[in-house]
Design a protein around this nucleic acid. Sequence first.
DNA 1: CCCGGATATGACACTCTTGTCATATTTGTT
DNA 2: AACAAATATGACAAGAGTGTCATATCCGGG
Lengths: 208, 208
Amino acid sequence: MPTATFFRLPAEKQKRIFRAAVKEFGHSHYSEASINQIIKNAGIPRGSFYQYFEGKEDIFIYVLEEISREKLEVFAQAIEGAKEKGFFASVGAVMPAIIAWVEQRAEYNMIGLRMVEEDSKIARDWFEQMRGSAGAIRMMIENDQKNGWIRGDVTPELVTELASSLAFPLVRLYYQSEDKSEVVKKLVLYFDMLYRGLRNDAAPEGLS
Amino acid sequence: MPTATFFRLPAEKQKRIFRAAVKEFGHSHYSEASINQIIKNAGIPRGSFYQYFEGKEDIFIYVLEEISREKLEVFAQAIEGAKEKGFFASVGAVMPAIIAWVEQRAEYNMIGLRMVEEDSKIARDWFEQMRGSAGAIRMMIENDQKNGWIRGDVTPELVTELASSLAFPLVRLYYQSEDKSEVVKKLVLYFDMLYRGLRNDAAPEGLS
DNA sequence: CCCGGATATGACACTCTTGTCATATTTGTT
DNA sequence: AACAAATATGACAAGAGTGTCATATCCGGG
């Protein structure tokens, strides 16, 4: 946790340091990110940094938590509006908000991307914690299964794993692409494919 | 390219250096991998390394090429046996060989995993080159589409992208898991889901 | 105006890595 | 044996990063 001193700093300075850290962690993997770079970007002397944070992990976690907070804020309403419609309908409904987030918070998302990529202990711990808080999604899927919308032989975990396995490369592609609309088109296809793959075929007559 | 001197070295020494490099590149991302570590593992002095390779990129490419060669060797027959049956049947047929490769060549695959993860220029270039040589798969999929097995509104590239988006996390999971059979079960589910998502629903009557 | 706690600062000592190079040592040939 | 070409070797300079600490500065309360 950042020191009390850090939190007593003028908001402007805190933000400046936060932004410098976001930039660095979005630019390099955790293990390669350099405190040197952060303090250079933030324009604070080396000694000050250690007055505010214990070290790299400390500021990294701080950045993750700040971003989480902001994300939750932004998505709160979007999620609220889409709850009882089942997984696919809900994701579809929230999709515009997600795309806007990807578009507007590129630097934040780069950090997430790098974390998935690097697969370090610190990243795994973080995602583990996230998974726990994704109970809402889990319930939605279980509900869909009860209703017979989603095939019963997959677990909710599997569905979310599948979705994120597909989502992360898409986000990466999005940032690399010139033509963003191409990527959105691809997203629609992925989504459709996932839907067909997961919907409950067993309904009326037998097959496969 | 490694120097002529390197190729004149006794085979045993070449192999020793190769293995040391595989170990290091499997252990750390390209950008973090250290020549120091490689020479320590291989038991050769610093000066010698630079007598054999221009630098890190040189030995990295060499390692990739060696692995490619070996991979091609191993899969040559497996692929041969499975060609004209269409994409899904073929992949299904080759699957045991793939699983065996994943199981036996963990270190090789770690390098591939790290390359996808890191998404460096050198990795992108390499995969680009690979994509070009994956013409056989492309043709198989196009053929399936002509035959009406695979829906026509996806491109072959999309299919391979989807497949690898799903495959890489699975491989990673495989190496992390205690219970390998669980992961294989998951693989089957993924595969089934991909099949359902990509098959041509427009076909007249049911198929398996 | 002055003092003490809170802050700020950058020099320092260390560690790790890289690429080079002058100096051995080995090998093959005459 | 003698000599040149090929190899081998490790000390070295340079670069980048890290965490600490003695010292300087600031600021609110008496």
